[in-house]
């Protein structure tokens, strides 16, 4: 996994979404096929557009309270935070062009 993608926990989450850049948080799990398809795309976006968006991940198995807090009932779900507030919710796997469009990059 790319060094630029941080794995968030219940402890580190709130601090991490407070960022001047938008933060895209990918809720995922090992057992989710579509999540695996999205992972390399997110790595590419992190590497190519690290100046415009921060990519982070939440493993739902390890952090159940975060799924409950944000009403995540399907993965992959990607939440885009701007100034610490949820600004957009992307449900389901998408291709790179689709994700960049959602991120307005």
């Amino acid at each position: 996994m790319s060094d630029t993608i941080e794995n968030l926990t219940e402890a580190s989450f709130d601090e991490a979404i407070k960022n001047d850049l938008p933060v895209l948080v990918d809720f995922w799990a090992e057992w989710c096929g579509p999540c695996r398809a999205v992972a390399p795309i997110l790595e590419e976006i992190a590497n190519e557009h690290g100046d415009k968006v921060v990519i982070a991940k939440v493993n739902v198995d390890e952090n159940p309270a975060l799924s409950v807090r944000f009403s995540v009932r399907s993965i992959p779900t990607m939440l885009l935070f701007k100034s610490g507030e949820e600004a957009k919710r992307i449900v389901g796997a998408k291709n790179k062009a689709g994700l960049l469009k959602e991120l307005e990059i």
């Binding site: 739902v60 009932r73 399907s74 992959p76 389901g92």
Partner: peptide, 17 residues
């Protein structure tokens, strides 16, 4: 309501129920 309770992928989403 897809992703908010309606699902087409039990293996992806069962965990949340």
């Amino acid at each position: 309501l897809i992703g908010r309770g309606v699902s087409t992928c039990a293996t992806c989403d069962g965990f949340f129920f």
